[in-house]
Structure formats: structure tokens, C-alpha cells
């Protein structure tokens, strides 16, 4: 697994990552990738991971950078993260030509 920015969060990150991978890819019931998942089962572990990481992001001043980037991006997201039908790149999609 990839390392955390904060070595002290590595353990809890690994527990969360493993949980997520299991949820995301599990063969049976294979829920998420089959499109039948009802919930992300790993929220509890994520909360622990987040708690560890938030402190580090704050201490290093990264949280401020993140907030600025998110502010800047609000408009971009509306423009670029939109559904299939109006995505210009699809103009050269074989199904539509």
C-alpha cells in the first residue's frame, strides 16, 4: 500500500485502505462494481484515519492550501465533472460517430 504523508497515520491508513479495497472489489457479492452497493462500509475506519491526518495537515499548513484549491475549483468542477452526454471528447467516440 502507498505510504501516508504522516508516518504516525500509516497503520490506520492501511486498515482503512484494506477495508475500502475489499468493499470496492470484493468478488462476492461484488457489490460496488456490480452497482448494487448500499453503503460504504468503511466509514468508521475512515473517521479514525481522518482524525489522524487532519491534525498533520493542520500542523503543516496544508489544510489552508487545500481550502484555497477547493475554492478555486468550484467553478471548474461544474464545467468538467459533468455527465457523459455533453462531454465534448465524445464527439470522436466511435459509438456516436
Amino acid at each position: 500500500m502507498s505510504a501516508s504523508l504522516a508516518p504516525e497515520c500509516n497503520d490506520v491508513k492501511e486498515r482503512y485502505d484494506n477495508c475500502f479495497l475489499k468493499w470496492y472489489s470484493e468478488s462476492d457479492p461484488h457489490e460496488y462494481l456490480r452497482g448494487s452497493a448500499t453503503t460504504d462500509d468503511c466509514e468508521k475506519l475512515f473517521k479514525q484515519y481522518e482524525q489522524c491526518l487532519t491534525k498533520v495537515l493542520k500542523d503543516k499548513g496544508i489544510d489552508k492550501m487545500l481550502n484555497e484549491a477547493r475554492e478555486d475549483n468550484k467553478d471548474n468542477d461544474a464545467e468538467h465533472m459533468h455527465p457523459v452526454s455533453c462531454f465534448p471528447i465524445f464527439l470522436d467516440h466511435p459509438d456516436l460517430s
Partner: peptide, 11 residues
Amino acid sequence: VVSTDTISRHY
């Protein structure tokens, strides 16, 4: 790539 962290995830 030194590190990778998930900072938020929503389903």
C-alpha cells in the same frame, strides 16, 4: 511519489 492519502470519500 512519496505518499498518497485519501482526504475525503463519498459514496
